[in-house]
Design a protein around this nucleic acid. Structure first.
Lengths: 199, 199
DNA sequence: GCCTGAAAACGGGCCGTTTCGTTTGATCGC
DNA sequence: GCGATCAAACGAAACGGCCCGTTTTCAGGC
């Protein structure tokens, strides 16, 4: 250990650590994965990061703010680009479910949604994210429009919202293990809405 | 939990259940509405109900269990039956959003979803509810089938799941104030998927 | 000698539980 | 019948513990 064993002369000192923010964010993510949202406390994060609570509160005003930044650091899920809308949508949902299952992203996103139910900062951020036109599904649909695969008059936001809602509900009800057939059935159904003549 | 309307099930000793249980459930709902999910604690409920904490813990093993029973006591939203599928779906979503906005049901359901992210009991219950075939949207679709308005081969569960996902996401992102036009647009889109020939 | 920043301590709230003394109501002896 | 009895449920208080958000203390760098 770096710390001297002599209690009368603790020489561990106050080392300047400009990158401690990274350590705290990594610790926060680790706590979230290992202990879940219920065990996610500033205390636990500080212990894990070997940092003091005031250090965390200096940079993040609330638990929600820390959670938000952990969320924004997440690696993005792969968005396929196969040249066919159906394959892109099915592939994306498959990737997304696997991503949520197998990385910390699922835990983080679930926690963010839960936190948003009692914290205005998280709620506003989540609403902004959900309303954003840059969602992955939106990109897939825009590409299909550019290829001429679907009409430019299709309401991408509406379709993307439906697909995203489907994914959210599966995340929130622990149904991320759907097989490809189920996902494809839903995608096919939604695509029938695209193909049918507008009303 | 289980409806025990059986007066024959008796043993020795005092049984003053109903009054106190009702008072606690009403207090729990009131706390949830007034203080939100963040302020929903057993302590707060006990204070409000002028009951002791042990009384609450005797009947409900956890916060999630109490939340579940509050949720199950909620008045159900009106399910319209106009004889036309489109009007039924639009009317139901309008009713549902208004119900969530204007009664305590929205707060209770949001809290239940949040709790489900860290409590297995709530999670299992929520998943069961979401999987249930007796959902309101499912009833509307079954009625449309019985009238011959849509084919019996339509996957009601899939369509109901899509509609429910849409509603959930709007609840969770504070977008319950959508006007009828937006709701109708989504319903029309989903109905085009019904009308289009299957693949 | 300031200033930065980590560690420790503080006051407060809620948790889930235990321990009181009291109240209720079904059972049973009279 | 009817009152005594006794188990169960009750409200209240207090507990040890954890975590909150803040404040204070103190060691080193400039």
């Amino acid at each position: 250990m770096a710390a001297d064993a002599d209690p009368a002369r603790k020489s561990i000192g106050a080392r300047r650590n400009p990158d401690s923010a990274d350590a705290i964010l990594e610790a926060a993510e680790a706590v979230l994965v290992e202990a879940g949202y219920a065990g996610f406390s500033i205390e636990a994060v500080a212990r894990r990061a070997r940092a003091g609570k005031p250090t965390i509160y200096r940079w993040w005003p609330s638990k929600a703010a820390l959670l938000l930044e952990v969320y924004q650091r997440q690696k993005r899920v792969d968005v396929p680009d196969t040249g066919r809308l159906e394959e892109d949508l099915v592939g994306f949902l498959k990737n997304l479910f696997a991503h949520w299952r197998e990385t910390s992203s699922g835990s983080v996103f679930r926690s963010l949604i839960a936190e948003a139910q009692s914290d205005d900062t998280a709620s506003a951020s989540l609403a902004g994210y959900a309303l954003g036109r840059r969602s992955h599904t939106g990109q897939i649909l825009e590409r299909a429009k550019a290829r001429g695969e679907i009409g430019v008059d299709i309401d991408s936001a509406l379709v993307a919202d439906l697909i995203a809602s489907f994914a959210w509900k599966h995340l929130l009800t622990n149904r991320l293990d759907e097989d490809e057939a189920t996902i494809r059935k839903t995608v096919n159904y939604v695509m029938r809405g695209i193909a049918a003549p507008g009303k």
